[in-house]
């Protein structure tokens, strides 16, 4: 991407109509935690007045006990009601040093084992 970064604050200087504090995350690598516990990591490219966000180069990160795995996914639009928190990635601590990175297939298999017997349904809590 080239040129001057877009000035989001100029659209809404008082911060009355948009989730203006998301401005500081634009084009940064962020970790997004959803209400169901899913973790997506990607570059936050844009957002709207509801707090809907678009993540670029998204990966899903799965933590199971002492191990973690990453699944590349691409571009994601996340509706704001599903978001719990968004955190800027600390480049020095991006990868959890205490934990072991395991291949994608293995982490998916372990998660499937954990989820066995539980139905997938949409909860609204």
């Amino acid at each position: 991407m080239t040129g001057e970064p877009f000035d989001f604050k100029s659209l809404d200087p008082e911060g009355l109509t948009s989730v203006v504090i998301l401005v500081e995350f634009v084009d940064k690598k962020v970790l997004t935690l959803l209400r169901d516990g899913t973790i997506y990591i990607g570059f936050l490219r844009t957002f709207d007045q509801y707090g809907t966000i678009i993540l670029h180069k998204t990966i899903e990160r799965i933590y199971i006990n002492e191990e973690y795995g990453e699944i590349p996914l691409g571009v994601f639009l996340i509706r704001s009601e599903n978001i719990v928190l968004i955190g800027e990635i600390d480049s020095e601590n991006e990868y959890p040093q205490k934990l072991t990175l395991i291949p994608k297939d293995e982490i998916l298999r372990k998660r499937a084992e954990l989820r066995e017997g539980t139905d997938n349904f949409i909860t609204d809590d």
Binding site: S80, E94, Y95
Partner: peptide
């Protein structure tokens, strides 16, 4: 909606995702 800096959680081993972030935006509704 709230943005916090220098965050910490009581039991970081239980929530390894918090080791990777330095500040965070929390949605007001949660």
């Amino acid at each position: 909606n709230i943005k916090l800096d220098k965050i910490s959680v009581p039991d970081p081993d239980k929530y390894p995702q918090f080791l990777s972030i330095k500040n965070c935006f929390v949605r007001g509704s949660v």
